[in-house]
C-alpha cells in the first residue's frame, strides 16, 4: 500500500500578541492509501490545526509533511495551490457552496482551476461526481433549494471532481441531524470501499466508529491511536432506523 501522508515531528506555534500558543507539539502520523481515518479530540486539542495543515491551508512551524511523496513544507505558494486543486478534496462543516449557483456549477468550480481539464470535459466530470453522490436529479438546483444533507453531498461531489488522492472533511456531519449524518457516513463508506482515502475530524464518538482507524488528539499531541474493532456499517444502521416521511420541496 502506498503511503499517502507521512508526518514527522510536526509542530505548529501561534503567536497571539506576546504569548506563543503551541497548537501542535510534535506529531508523527502515517496514513496509507485506502484508509478511513477519524481525527478526534476536544476543542483546542489541535485537531483542526492538524486538518488545516493536512489540507495545505496552513504551514507547519517545524517538521516534515509528505503528501503523496511530495514534501509540502518546502513548497511555493502557487505549487501548494495546485496541490490543493489536484491532490486534495475538501468537505466543510458549513458546506461552503456558492450561493445562487447551481449544484452542477458548484461541482464544476475546482475544474476551472485545473489546467489539465479541458472546457468540454468539465460538465461531464461534474455530472459523474454528482452521480457518485446520488444527486443527478438535483443538478440544476440552487443551494437554498437543497436540504442540508443534499448540500453536503454537493460539497462531497465537489471534493471528488478532480479525482484527489485524499479527501479531508472538517466535521462533515456537524450541522446535520442523526439520520442525515448516517447517510453522509454511508456515502463516505461507499467511497472508501471504492478505494478513496478519507480523513475526517469529528468530536462525536458515534461518528468516529464508521472509520477504520481513530486518532485521538489531546493538548497538541496524539493521545491515542486505535484500529476500530467494532466498526459500524452506516447502511445497516439506516435500515434499522424508522423511515421518516421527508417532505420534499420541488
Amino acid at each position: 500500500m502506498n503511503t499517502i501522508i507521512e508526518i514527522r515531528n510536526l509542530r505548529k506555534d501561534y503567536h497571539v500578541g506576546e504569548v506563543t500558543v503551541h497548537a501542535l507539539r510534535g506529531i508523527d502520523l502515517k496514513i496509507t492509501e485506502g484508509e478511513f481515518v477519524a481525527i478526534m479530540g476536544a476543542s483546542g486539542s489541535g485537531k483542526s490545526t492538524m486538518l488545516n495543515i493536512l489540507g495545505c491551508l496552513d504551514k507547519p512551524t517545524a517538521g516534515d509533511y509528505l503528501l503523496d511523496g511530495i514534501n509540502v513544507s518546502s513548497m511555493e505558494k502557487d505549487a501548494i495551490a495546485r496541490l490543493r486543486n489536484q491532490k486534495l478534496g475538501f468537505v466543510f462543516q458549513a458546506y461552503n457552496l456558492l450561493a445562487r449557483t447551481t449544484a452542477l456549477e458548484n461541482v464544476e468550480l475546482p475544474l476551472f482551476y485545473n489546467p489539465k481539464v479541458r472546457a468540454r470535459d468539465r460538465r461531464e466530470a461534474a455530472i459523474r461526481a454528482l452521480e457518485a453522490v446520488g444527486l443527478t436529479d438535483r443538478m440544476h438546483h440552487m443551494p437554498n433549494q437543497l436540504s442540508g444533507g443534499q448540500q453536503q453531498r454537493v460539497a462531497i461531489a465537489r471534493s471528488l471532481v478532480n479525482d484527489p488522492v485524499l479527501i479531508l472533511a472538517d466535521e462533515p456531519t456537524g450541522n446535520l441531524d442523526t439520520r442525515t449524518s448516517f447517510e453522509i457516513m454511508e456515502l463516505f463508506q461507499n467511497l472508501n470501499e471504492k478505494g478513496r482515502t478519507i480523513v475526517y475530524v469529528t468530536h462525536e464518538p458515534d461518528i468516529a466508529k464508521f472509520a477504520t482507524r481513530n486518532v485521538m488528539f489531546r493538548d497538541g499531541k496524539i493521545y491515542r491511536e486505535s484500529i476500530v474493532t467494532e466498526r459500524l456499517n452506516a447502511k445497516e444502521i439506516l435500515e434499522t432506523l424508522p423511515v421518516e416521511v421527508i417532505e420534499e420541496f420541488d
Binding site: G55, D78, A81, R82, R84, N96, P110, Y113
Partner: peptide, 16 residues
C-alpha cells in the same frame, strides 16, 4: 471573503 477562502481551498492561487 468566505467565497475567496473556498476558491483558495479548492486550488485557486492568489493570482487567480
Amino acid at each position: 471573503t468566505r467565497e475567496i477562502g473556498l476558491r483558495m481551498s479548492i486550488g485557486g492561487r492568489g493570482k487567480d
